[in-house]
Amino acid sequence: MSIDIDTARKVAHLARIRVPEDNLPALASELSNILTFMEQLGEVDVDGIEPMTSVTPMRLKRREDVVTDGGYPEKVLKNAPDAREGFFAVPKVVE
């Protein structure tokens, strides 16, 4: 499976990483090389095998559905690049 420039552009967009148009051919070829390496997986007979969901057989623990943490908005916002009036601030999203 080789990745063309359009696919590379689409993947970069889905990943929300800006890639300059000039860099797309190199990116496409790098991603293609990595995928070629992964093609080996096609040789394996996986008939009847369930995809692994948990590496150790375990049942997730249950607990009461109650609030156990919180109540410190100033700590939550402490590292924000832009926080105002108790909220994270971002560029305008609604016209």
Partner: peptide, 14 residues
């Protein structure tokens, strides 16, 4: 083709 197949191969490795 990729992710689910890799998880199946992972099950075989285990």
């Amino acid at each position: 083709a990729y992710y689910n197949r890799a998880r199946k191969v992972r099950a075989l490795i285990k």
